[in-house]
Simulated scan of single mutants.
Amino acid sequence: MKTTLRRLSAGMATVVAATAVAVILLPGMASAQTISRIYSYTTKGATQCRAEANVAGPGYYCTTTTIAGTKYYALAY
């Protein structure tokens, strides 16, 4: 019984941690955008983002996002 309870507790801790990471990485629901990839907030990062947005096709664009206080370029849909 104790082993089962420990496993359940560990499983729940993993789910809570994964959900917390997802909430931090994904934009808010009001924005209705999906971040596909992030790039460094440099000229090189901006160039890579624009190039991949052009290759990805219609609906993809580059934007900026802040994750844990650090700014990034992001390929979004």
Score class of each variant (00 low, 15 high):
Q48H: 03
V55H: 06
Y61P: 00
S40T: 09
K2T: 04
M12S: 09
M12N: 10
R37Q: 06
T3N: 10
G69H: 01
A46C: 05
R7T: 08
A30L: 01
A22T: 05
L8H: 10
A46Y: 14
G11N: 10
A53C: 09
Y41P: 02
A74N: 02
Y41C: 06
A76Q: 03
G28Q: 15
S31P: 02
A32V: 04
T34V: 15
T70Y: 07
Q33E: 15
A10T: 02
Y73G: 01
E52V: 03
I24N: 07
E52F: 04
L5C: 02
T19I: 12
M1D: 09
T14N: 14
A32E: 11
T19Y: 15
A76M: 05
Q48E: 09
V55M: 05
C62F: 00
I38P: 00
A53G: 12
P58Q: 15
C62I: 04
M12P: 04
G45P: 09
G11V: 00
G59W: 01
Y73R: 03
T34R: 04
K2L: 12
A30P: 05
T34A: 09
I38M: 09
A13E: 11
L25Y: 15
S9Q: 14
G57C: 01
K71P: 07
T14L: 15
L75T: 02
A46F: 12
M12D: 02
R37L: 01
M12H: 05
S40G: 02
S9F: 13
Y73M: 03
G59V: 03
A53M: 05
T3R: 08
A68K: 09
G11I: 04
A20D: 13
M1G: 15
A17H: 08
Y61H: 04
L75S: 00
P27D: 10
I35M: 13
G57V: 05
I67V: 11
I35E: 01
T63A: 01
T63C: 00
Y60K: 08
G69D: 05
G28D: 15
V55P: 01
A22V: 13
L26T: 15
T64D: 05
Y61L: 09
N54Y: 01
L8V: 05
P27V: 02
T42F: 07
G59F: 00
T19V: 15
A10I: 13
A30V: 01
G45Y: 03
R37D: 05
K44Y: 11
A46S: 11
A46P: 05
A18Y: 02
M12I: 14
G59P: 01
A18R: 04
A32D: 15
G28F: 04
T42Q: 06
T65L: 09
